[in-house]
């Protein structure tokens, strides 16, 4: 069986989430994607590679350039995933812990 990357892992990373939202607006070349970040081109390439392996992004050849666009199939799949929902509760509960520790020390 071919080992497939964990989609959870793919969208858990903030840089990769930003890449997804950039590409959601329009298909972009790797260079255009990298221009949005301060990271090295290699780092961004690695993120793009992971997103492609997870079938979130797909390549399209336009003339001499390769453009990346969202893979509708992968995106539909990803929407079902619970990581952002989990993250929302995790943030809330972290806040709860902070609020209550402060509340406790006030007494």
């Amino acid at each position: 069986m071919k080992l497939r990357r964990d989609v959870f892992q793919a969208i858990a990373d903030p840089t990769r989430r930003t890449i997804i939202s950039l590409i959601a607006l329009q298909a972009l070349t790797p260079t255009a994607i990298a221009e949005n970040f301060d990271y090295s081109r290699q780092t961004i390439s690695k993120h793009i590679q992971i997103l492609t392996e997870c079938e979130i992004l797909e390549q399209e050849q336009k003339g001499r350039e390769i453009y990346y666009q969202l893979n509708p199939k992968g995106m539909r799949e990803i929407a079902e995933f619970i990581e952002p929902f989990r993250k929302m509760w995790d943030d809330r509960f972290n806040k709860l812990e902070t609020v209550m520790k402060k509340h406790q020390s006030k007494k």
Partner: peptide, 15 residues
């Protein structure tokens, strides 16, 4: 619908 909501919200915020 519930599970998708924070994900779509995140994307919308970025947009």
């Amino acid at each position: 619908i519930q599970l998708k909501m924070p994900f779509e919200y995140g994307i919308n915020m970025a947009h």
